[in-house]
Amino acid sequence: MRHYYRLTDLAIEQILDLLDRAEHHRHNPRSETLARKEFVLIFLNPSLRTRASFEVAIRHMGGGVTTLGADAIWPLEAQPGTVMDQQQTEHVFEAALVLSRYYDGIGVRSLARGQSREEDLQDQVLASFMERAQVPVFNMESAMYHPCQALGDLLTVRDLLGGFKGRRLTITWAYHPRALPMSVPNSILLAACKTGMDVTLAHPPEFALTTGMMELAHAEVERSGGALRVCHDRCEALKDTEIVYAKAWGGLGRYDDPAREAEERDRYRSWIVDKDAMSRTRRAFFMHCLPVRRNVVVTDEVLESAASKVIHQAENRLHVQKAILEWLYAWNER
Protein backbone atom coordinates (compact mmCIF):
# COMPACT_ATOMS: atom_id res chain seq x y z
CA MET A 1 0.00 0.00 0.00
CA ARG A 2 1.29 3.43 -0.96
CA HIS A 3 1.37 6.48 1.37
CA TYR A 4 2.56 10.04 0.67
CA TYR A 5 4.93 11.13 3.43
CA ARG A 6 7.68 13.24 1.85
CA LEU A 7 8.32 14.35 -1.71
CA THR A 8 11.89 13.10 -1.90
CA ASP A 9 10.74 9.51 -1.35
CA LEU A 10 9.79 9.70 -5.04
CA ALA A 11 12.16 9.37 -7.99
CA ILE A 12 12.76 12.53 -10.00
CA GLU A 13 10.85 10.99 -12.91
CA GLN A 14 7.81 10.49 -10.67
CA ILE A 15 8.01 14.09 -9.45
CA LEU A 16 8.13 15.43 -12.99
CA ASP A 17 5.18 13.21 -13.93
CA LEU A 18 3.22 14.61 -10.99
CA LEU A 19 3.96 18.15 -12.15
CA ASP A 20 2.73 17.26 -15.64
CA ARG A 21 -0.45 15.77 -14.18
CA ALA A 22 -0.92 18.89 -12.03
CA GLU A 23 -0.71 20.96 -15.21
CA HIS A 24 -3.36 18.72 -16.73
CA HIS A 25 -5.63 19.26 -13.72
CA ARG A 26 -5.10 23.01 -13.96
CA HIS A 27 -6.81 22.96 -17.35
CA ASN A 28 -9.18 20.05 -16.65
CA PRO A 29 -10.40 20.71 -13.11
CA ARG A 30 -13.13 18.08 -12.80
CA SER A 31 -13.02 14.31 -13.11
CA GLU A 32 -14.46 11.13 -11.61
CA THR A 33 -11.10 9.73 -10.50
CA LEU A 34 -12.23 9.51 -6.86
CA ALA A 35 -15.88 8.66 -7.53
CA ARG A 36 -17.48 6.58 -4.77
CA LYS A 37 -14.51 7.15 -2.47
CA GLU A 38 -14.64 8.83 0.94
CA PHE A 39 -11.81 10.69 2.67
CA VAL A 40 -11.20 11.99 6.16
CA LEU A 41 -8.93 14.99 6.75
CA ILE A 42 -7.61 15.25 10.32
CA PHE A 43 -6.28 18.67 11.29
CA LEU A 44 -4.58 18.67 14.66
CA ASN A 45 -3.44 22.23 13.84
CA PRO A 46 -5.10 25.21 12.10
CA SER A 47 -5.25 25.42 8.32
CA LEU A 48 -6.66 27.64 5.60
CA ARG A 49 -5.02 26.69 2.26
CA THR A 50 -4.40 23.02 3.00
CA ARG A 51 -7.90 22.35 4.25
CA ALA A 52 -9.66 24.34 1.52
CA SER A 53 -7.52 23.01 -1.33
CA PHE A 54 -7.86 19.36 -0.26
CA GLU A 55 -11.60 19.61 0.22
CA VAL A 56 -12.04 21.23 -3.20
CA ALA A 57 -9.63 18.78 -4.86
CA ILE A 58 -11.49 15.74 -3.53
CA ARG A 59 -14.89 17.12 -4.52
CA HIS A 60 -13.63 18.15 -7.98
CA MET A 61 -12.52 14.53 -8.47
CA GLY A 62 -15.87 13.06 -7.46
CA GLY A 63 -15.07 12.01 -3.89
CA GLY A 64 -16.62 12.74 -0.52
CA VAL A 65 -14.79 14.37 2.35
CA THR A 66 -15.10 14.71 6.13
CA THR A 67 -12.90 17.23 7.95
CA LEU A 68 -12.12 16.77 11.63
CA GLY A 69 -10.33 19.43 13.68
CA ALA A 70 -8.50 18.87 16.94
CA ASP A 71 -11.54 20.11 18.86
CA ALA A 72 -13.78 17.48 17.22
CA ILE A 73 -11.85 14.35 18.22
CA TRP A 74 -10.40 12.87 21.38
CA PRO A 75 -6.85 14.00 22.22
CA LEU A 76 -4.55 11.53 20.45
CA GLU A 77 -1.56 9.65 21.82
CA ALA A 78 1.03 8.45 19.28
CA GLN A 79 3.90 7.02 21.32
CA PRO A 80 3.94 3.20 21.38
CA GLY A 81 3.88 1.56 24.79
CA THR A 82 2.89 4.69 26.69
CA VAL A 83 0.83 4.63 29.89
CA MET A 84 -2.16 6.80 28.96
CA ASP A 85 -2.93 8.32 32.35
CA GLN A 86 -2.60 11.96 31.24
CA GLN A 87 -4.60 14.16 28.82
CA GLN A 88 -4.56 11.85 25.78
CA THR A 89 -7.73 9.79 25.53
CA GLU A 90 -7.34 7.73 22.34
CA HIS A 91 -4.32 6.12 20.71
CA VAL A 92 -3.55 6.63 17.03
CA PHE A 93 -3.28 2.85 16.71
CA GLU A 94 -7.05 2.39 17.29
CA ALA A 95 -8.05 5.63 15.55
CA ALA A 96 -6.22 4.69 12.35
CA LEU A 97 -7.76 1.22 12.25
CA VAL A 98 -11.28 2.51 12.89
CA LEU A 99 -11.03 5.25 10.26
CA SER A 100 -9.70 2.68 7.80
CA ARG A 101 -13.02 0.85 8.13
CA TYR A 102 -14.98 4.02 7.27
CA TYR A 103 -12.80 5.78 4.67
CA ASP A 104 -10.73 5.13 1.57
CA GLY A 105 -7.99 7.58 2.55
CA ILE A 106 -6.73 9.53 5.56
CA GLY A 107 -5.06 12.95 5.44
CA VAL A 108 -3.23 14.09 8.58
CA ARG A 109 -1.81 17.45 9.67
CA SER A 110 0.23 17.29 12.88
CA LEU A 111 2.87 19.99 13.29
CA ALA A 112 5.96 19.99 15.49
CA ARG A 113 5.08 20.78 19.09
CA GLY A 114 8.58 22.12 19.76
CA GLN A 115 8.78 20.47 23.18
CA SER A 116 10.66 17.24 22.50
CA ARG A 117 13.31 17.16 19.79
CA GLU A 118 13.15 13.37 19.62
CA GLU A 119 9.36 13.37 19.21
CA ASP A 120 9.50 15.94 16.41
CA LEU A 121 12.37 14.24 14.57
CA GLN A 122 10.53 10.92 14.66
CA ASP A 123 7.35 12.47 13.22
CA GLN A 124 5.54 10.14 15.58
CA VAL A 125 1.92 11.02 14.72
CA LEU A 126 2.37 10.53 10.96
CA ALA A 127 4.52 7.46 11.52
CA SER A 128 1.86 5.85 13.72
CA PHE A 129 -0.94 6.57 11.26
CA MET A 130 1.05 5.08 8.39
CA GLU A 131 2.00 2.07 10.47
CA ARG A 132 -1.56 1.15 11.46
CA ALA A 133 -3.84 2.51 8.72
CA GLN A 134 -5.18 0.01 6.20
CA VAL A 135 -5.83 2.71 3.58
CA PRO A 136 -3.48 5.31 2.05
CA VAL A 137 -2.32 8.10 4.36
CA PHE A 138 -1.18 11.45 2.97
CA ASN A 139 0.84 14.04 4.85
CA MET A 140 -0.86 17.46 5.02
CA GLU A 141 2.14 18.79 7.02
CA SER A 142 3.97 17.04 9.79
CA ALA A 143 6.67 17.96 12.27
CA MET A 144 9.38 17.45 9.64
CA TYR A 145 7.83 17.74 6.18
CA HIS A 146 5.21 19.56 4.11
CA PRO A 147 5.32 17.52 0.89
CA CYS A 148 2.19 19.02 -0.68
CA GLN A 149 3.62 22.52 -0.27
CA ALA A 150 6.93 21.38 -1.74
CA LEU A 151 5.31 19.94 -4.86
CA GLY A 152 3.22 23.10 -5.28
CA ASP A 153 6.40 25.13 -4.92
CA LEU A 154 8.09 23.14 -7.68
CA LEU A 155 5.12 23.73 -9.97
CA THR A 156 5.37 27.45 -9.23
CA VAL A 157 9.12 27.49 -9.94
CA ARG A 158 8.52 25.70 -13.24
CA ASP A 159 5.74 28.15 -14.12
CA LEU A 160 8.07 31.10 -13.43
CA LEU A 161 11.41 29.87 -14.74
CA GLY A 162 10.48 27.13 -17.19
CA GLY A 163 12.61 24.47 -15.48
CA PHE A 164 14.97 23.65 -12.63
CA LYS A 165 18.49 22.73 -13.70
CA GLY A 166 20.91 25.46 -12.67
CA ARG A 167 18.21 27.99 -11.81
CA ARG A 168 18.96 30.07 -8.73
CA LEU A 169 16.83 29.85 -5.61
CA THR A 170 17.56 31.51 -2.26
CA ILE A 171 15.73 30.16 0.78
CA THR A 172 16.04 32.87 3.38
CA TRP A 173 15.26 32.70 7.08
CA ALA A 174 13.07 35.53 8.35
CA TYR A 175 12.30 36.84 11.80
CA HIS A 176 9.05 35.77 13.46
CA PRO A 177 7.80 36.34 17.02
CA ARG A 178 7.24 32.59 17.40
CA ALA A 179 9.58 29.62 16.96
CA LEU A 180 7.92 28.06 13.90
CA PRO A 181 8.45 24.46 12.70
CA MET A 182 11.07 23.52 10.11
CA SER A 183 8.76 21.44 7.90
CA VAL A 184 8.49 24.00 5.06
CA PRO A 185 12.19 24.94 4.81
CA ASN A 186 13.11 21.25 5.06
CA SER A 187 10.76 20.40 2.21
CA ILE A 188 11.58 23.19 -0.25
CA LEU A 189 15.30 22.65 0.41
CA LEU A 190 15.13 18.95 -0.44
CA ALA A 191 12.81 19.51 -3.41
CA ALA A 192 15.04 22.19 -4.94
CA CYS A 193 18.18 20.10 -4.43
CA LYS A 194 16.55 17.02 -5.92
CA THR A 195 15.58 18.88 -9.10
CA GLY A 196 19.10 20.19 -9.70
CA MET A 197 18.65 23.83 -8.75
CA ASP A 198 21.43 26.15 -7.60
CA VAL A 199 20.29 26.61 -3.99
CA THR A 200 21.44 29.08 -1.36
CA LEU A 201 20.19 28.54 2.19
CA ALA A 202 20.52 31.78 4.15
CA HIS A 203 20.08 31.98 7.92
CA PRO A 204 21.78 33.36 11.03
CA PRO A 205 24.31 30.91 12.52
CA GLU A 206 21.98 30.03 15.41
CA PHE A 207 19.17 28.92 13.07
CA ALA A 208 20.68 26.01 11.18
CA LEU A 209 18.48 23.14 10.05
CA THR A 210 19.25 19.72 11.54
CA THR A 211 22.47 17.99 10.59
CA GLY A 212 20.48 15.06 9.23
CA MET A 213 18.43 17.33 6.98
CA MET A 214 21.53 18.98 5.56
CA GLU A 215 23.06 15.58 4.88
CA LEU A 216 19.94 14.59 2.95
CA ALA A 217 20.10 17.84 0.97
CA HIS A 218 23.76 17.34 0.04
CA ALA A 219 23.00 13.77 -1.03
CA GLU A 220 20.24 15.04 -3.33
CA VAL A 221 22.65 17.58 -4.84
CA GLU A 222 25.18 14.81 -5.53
CA ARG A 223 22.55 12.83 -7.43
CA SER A 224 21.00 15.75 -9.31
CA GLY A 225 24.10 17.73 -10.23
CA GLY A 226 22.72 20.83 -8.53
CA ALA A 227 24.50 23.07 -6.04
CA LEU A 228 23.96 24.00 -2.40
CA ARG A 229 25.65 26.59 -0.24
CA VAL A 230 24.84 27.87 3.24
CA CYS A 231 25.28 31.60 3.79
CA HIS A 232 25.00 33.65 6.99
CA ASP A 233 25.24 36.96 5.12
CA ARG A 234 21.73 37.78 3.93
CA CYS A 235 22.82 40.36 1.37
CA GLU A 236 25.38 38.01 -0.16
CA ALA A 237 22.81 35.20 -0.29
CA LEU A 238 20.37 37.32 -2.29
CA LYS A 239 22.88 38.43 -4.90
CA ASP A 240 21.79 37.46 -8.45
CA THR A 241 19.18 34.97 -7.27
CA GLU A 242 16.09 34.37 -9.42
CA ILE A 243 13.66 33.42 -6.65
CA VAL A 244 13.58 34.58 -3.04
CA TYR A 245 11.75 32.04 -0.88
CA ALA A 246 11.26 33.52 2.60
CA LYS A 247 10.35 31.39 5.61
CA ALA A 248 10.65 31.81 9.36
CA TRP A 249 11.63 28.91 11.58
CA GLY A 250 12.73 28.44 15.15
CA GLY A 251 16.22 27.43 16.24
CA LEU A 252 17.05 23.99 17.59
CA GLY A 253 17.91 25.69 20.88
CA ARG A 254 14.18 25.98 21.62
CA TYR A 255 14.18 22.39 22.86
CA ASP A 256 16.79 23.03 25.55
CA ASP A 257 16.49 26.74 26.36
CA PRO A 258 13.38 28.41 24.84
CA ALA A 259 14.09 31.76 26.47
CA ARG A 260 17.57 31.96 24.99
CA GLU A 261 16.28 30.90 21.57
CA ALA A 262 13.70 33.69 21.70
CA GLU A 263 16.42 36.21 22.59
CA GLU A 264 18.57 35.00 19.70
CA ARG A 265 15.63 35.22 17.31
CA ASP A 266 14.85 38.76 18.44
CA ARG A 267 18.37 39.88 17.52
CA TYR A 268 17.65 39.23 13.87
CA ARG A 269 14.55 41.35 13.35
CA SER A 270 16.37 42.97 10.42
CA TRP A 271 16.01 39.73 8.43
CA ILE A 272 12.95 40.97 6.58
CA VAL A 273 12.40 40.86 2.81
CA ASP A 274 12.03 44.48 1.78
CA LYS A 275 12.68 46.56 -1.33
CA ASP A 276 16.36 46.81 -0.54
CA ALA A 277 16.68 43.04 -0.21
CA MET A 278 14.90 42.43 -3.53
CA SER A 279 17.09 45.02 -5.26
CA ARG A 280 20.10 42.78 -4.66
CA THR A 281 18.60 39.97 -6.74
CA ARG A 282 18.40 39.29 -10.45
CA ARG A 283 14.91 40.85 -10.64
CA ALA A 284 13.79 37.87 -8.57
CA PHE A 285 10.31 36.60 -7.86
CA PHE A 286 9.16 36.41 -4.24
CA MET A 287 7.64 33.22 -2.80
CA HIS A 288 6.22 32.33 0.60
CA CYS A 289 3.98 29.44 1.65
CA LEU A 290 1.50 31.67 3.57
CA PRO A 291 0.23 32.70 6.02
CA VAL A 292 2.77 35.49 6.29
CA ARG A 293 3.15 38.27 8.84
CA ARG A 294 3.22 41.50 6.88
CA ASN A 295 6.01 43.92 7.76
CA VAL A 296 7.65 41.24 9.89
CA VAL A 297 8.66 38.58 7.35
CA VAL A 298 8.08 40.70 4.23
CA THR A 299 7.03 44.30 3.68
CA ASP A 300 3.73 45.34 2.17
CA GLU A 301 5.65 46.86 -0.73
CA VAL A 302 7.21 43.55 -1.75
CA LEU A 303 4.13 41.46 -1.06
CA GLU A 304 1.97 43.73 -3.22
CA SER A 305 4.53 44.05 -6.02
CA ALA A 306 4.53 42.30 -9.39
CA ALA A 307 7.44 40.18 -8.15
CA SER A 308 5.26 38.51 -5.51
CA LYS A 309 3.85 35.15 -6.62
CA VAL A 310 2.37 33.98 -3.33
CA ILE A 311 -1.22 33.79 -4.61
CA HIS A 312 -0.22 31.83 -7.70
CA GLN A 313 1.85 29.60 -5.40
CA ALA A 314 -1.18 28.97 -3.17
CA GLU A 315 -3.40 28.17 -6.17
CA ASN A 316 -0.93 25.55 -7.32
CA ARG A 317 -1.58 23.58 -4.14
CA LEU A 318 -4.97 22.63 -5.56
CA HIS A 319 -3.53 21.28 -8.80
CA VAL A 320 -0.67 19.29 -7.29
CA GLN A 321 -2.89 17.73 -4.63
CA LYS A 322 -5.16 16.40 -7.34
CA ALA A 323 -2.09 14.84 -8.93
CA ILE A 324 -1.03 13.34 -5.59
CA LEU A 325 -4.45 11.80 -4.96
CA GLU A 326 -4.56 10.45 -8.50
CA TRP A 327 -1.08 8.94 -8.04
CA LEU A 328 -2.05 7.32 -4.74
CA TYR A 329 -5.18 5.65 -6.02
CA ALA A 330 -3.98 4.68 -9.48
CA TRP A 331 -1.25 2.65 -7.78
CA ASN A 332 -3.21 1.31 -4.82
CA GLU A 333 -5.98 -0.06 -7.03
CA ARG A 334 -3.68 -2.19 -9.18
Rank of each mutant, 00 (worst) to 15 (best):
V98Y: 10
V98I: 12
V92M: 06
Q87H: 04
G114L: 02
L126V: 04
Q124I: 14
V92Y: 02
V92T: 04
V108C: 06
Q115D: 05
S128L: 01
L126D: 09
V92L: 05
E118F: 10
Y102I: 07
L121E: 11
M130K: 13
D123T: 02
M130P: 04
R109Q: 06
D104M: 00
D120V: 00
G114M: 08
R109F: 03
L111Q: 04
L99I: 01
Q115W: 01
E90C: 03
D123K: 02
L97G: 14
R117Q: 07
Q88E: 07
D85T: 14
V125H: 12
E94G: 14
Y102C: 07
V98Q: 09
E131H: 11
E119V: 03
Q115N: 03
R132L: 09
Q88N: 04
R132F: 15
R101D: 14
E90R: 03
Y102M: 12
A127Q: 05
T89K: 11
S116G: 00
V108G: 01
A127R: 09
L99G: 06
Q124D: 05
M130T: 15
L121I: 01
A95V: 11
A95R: 10
R132A: 15
M130C: 14
A112G: 04
D120Q: 01
A95Q: 12
D85K: 07
E118R: 15
G107E: 08
M130G: 10
R109C: 09
I106G: 05
A95N: 10
I106N: 12
D85Q: 09
Q87I: 09
G105E: 04
A96E: 15
S128N: 03
D104Q: 02
S110H: 15
A95D: 08
A127N: 09
L111I: 13
Y103W: 08
A112M: 08
F93K: 11
L97Q: 15
D104R: 00
V125L: 14
V125T: 15
